[in-house]
Design a protein around this nucleic acid. Sequence first.
DNA 1: TATATTTGCTTAATCGATTAAGCAAATATA
DNA 2: TATATTTGCTTAATCGATTAAGCAAATATA
Lengths: 339, 339
Amino acid sequence: MANKKRTTLKDIANALNISPAAVSKAMHDDSRISDKTKKAVKRIAKELDYQPNHLASALRKGKSNLVGVIVPRTNSNFFSSVLENMEVVLNKAGYNIIITQSNESFEKECKNIDTLLFTQVDGIIASMANETVDLSHYEKIKSKGIPLILFDRGENDLNVDYVGINDYDSSHMIVEHLVEKGCKRIAHIGGYRRTRIFNNRIRGYVDALKENNLPKDDSLIIESSLTLEDGRREMQRLLQLKNRPDAVYIASDYAALGALQILNENNINVPEDIRLIGFGNEPFTSLVTPSISSIKQHSKDIGRLAAETFLKRVDEPELKQSLNKIILNAELIIRDSSK
Amino acid sequence: MANKKRTTLKDIANALNISPAAVSKAMHDDSRISDKTKKAVKRIAKELDYQPNHLASALRKGKSNLVGVIVPRTNSNFFSSVLENMEVVLNKAGYNIIITQSNESFEKECKNIDTLLFTQVDGIIASMANETVDLSHYEKIKSKGIPLILFDRGENDLNVDYVGINDYDSSHMIVEHLVEKGCKRIAHIGGYRRTRIFNNRIRGYVDALKENNLPKDDSLIIESSLTLEDGRREMQRLLQLKNRPDAVYIASDYAALGALQILNENNINVPEDIRLIGFGNEPFTSLVTPSISSIKQHSKDIGRLAAETFLKRVDEPELKQSLNKIILNAELIIRDSSK
DNA sequence: TATATTTGCTTAATCGATTAAGCAAATATA
DNA sequence: TATATTTGCTTAATCGATTAAGCAAATATA
């Protein structure tokens, strides 16, 4: 039968005729236990295939060594790369991660937080769903005294550690690049202004236009959910304008892909007639025709830094109230769509 | 200070001057507790913001209500969709899922299993990494008496429940479709034969050729890791053959995309000169030019069925030894690349 | 009215691992 | 040699929630 009972410390203790307490200490190399006993304990532990019961030790120690991570979705190269690098750092420090996805839904995000708190995680690292406006569930994490670190999709109102790229400057870089190529009417299909990163991208775009003495035209600034469908729809709308743009900066590669499809379907030459720039440097940007210029977000660094920020919070006494806001510089990858 | 102590059953008990046992029962609507007490307990629980300690109850009940999931990677539409649907079913049944990714690495997969067992999951649902040949770590799960369910990437040697599509028949469908279009020399860039699903795809391809009286040419059958780069390299090689194929069936959309790039770069018309078919129906297949025909794997159903299979295993007494092997029929989505 | 059953709780043990406190034997120091 | 310290363990309590067993009061049944 497969379902034999698990080996416990007590079993090892009985086998050696010592107390479970001694076994526990031997397993942790306590200095007050003799080498002879330690060796014997470890031998028997191996023999009986002892696996410590995580629930019991976590309950007793008040520490689960689990970190919860919430991402809007996993099937994006950015988030999956962040996760991968986060995990490396946390594993090395003895933590395991539990990944959950909100699917960009506010309700799901709340449920994820409940699940993670319920699982007794030692901290939560999250990137907010597009839908999220109400922040009370994040306040809940803070009020439990559990470290909360946000990355990419953060919020200023929430006074927590944050790791992300400089969205404002990224927009700047994009506009500068397009202006250099001679563009005069640059449209922006962005995310919703209430989300910090998308707000920053819009602000960067508007300020960069001003600096280059280009007029700001509200019909060229569009807010959306930035899905592929949104990209198609909004590009369609831009093409119907009397005075068409000569460049479109889109705050997501998925939406940029949708826009490109519309341009291709309408036989509009990219980059000759309209230049196109996306955001996120998803792998497909280099695969489509023409390849799409995009912003590289340093997902590896973001993952690593978010993890390290968490570790700092755990190690340091609660006293230190200063916040860690880490803003990385992004990189513009220029491809055929804007050459 | 944020770090105030958590509310426990005992706190509620003290507030009401009853025993913790009564509180526990009241929270679970035990029939032997009066409505008056239940109401009072729930009121105080809300007032003190009581959150049950999952570690304690899991330890006592010997059940964590957590299910571990291992996927080769999350940034594929197939796996992320499987995960999403799996989660819906399991959440409804009171389970939460812990997602881990192996990144196609055998070593990482072993570590993931250790992590999940350590976290005391009630079951594991997994899809194997490409690298995996040695199955002893999966045997470990079985020997603990924890339900193990495999999906998509499974193994016959491992006697466990499985949910996947009919890879053999899918290959058949593809070959039939290509033959119908007049193709006579159909190449296959596949995965490694040692992996069950890729082996089935190769067998289906070979048998279908035979049935259609087409000669089997070993120079047209290629094994690889099926990355985008593999697709590029192997397509390149196929083009260098004296007797070029007039169709290529590739067992992964990513590799198919690489192959398409090479064909485009060499100004070979698709589908006129060479027809192309991928596998997996990743979103980009409909986005590239020309769009790529592919096999739709019913990721939603696979996720749902894998979850339901787990639930059945948990509910049923261990006695029932019959295995659940669920094989779904896939669907060929015909696009421009094979029209 | 006498006994049986039900109701509504309490008591105490338990799930495993950990740890503070303590004790006896061995060793070190004065 | 007498006292102090160290070594190597044990004992008992604890982390919270759950549950079997049991008890007294209330209610039902004969």
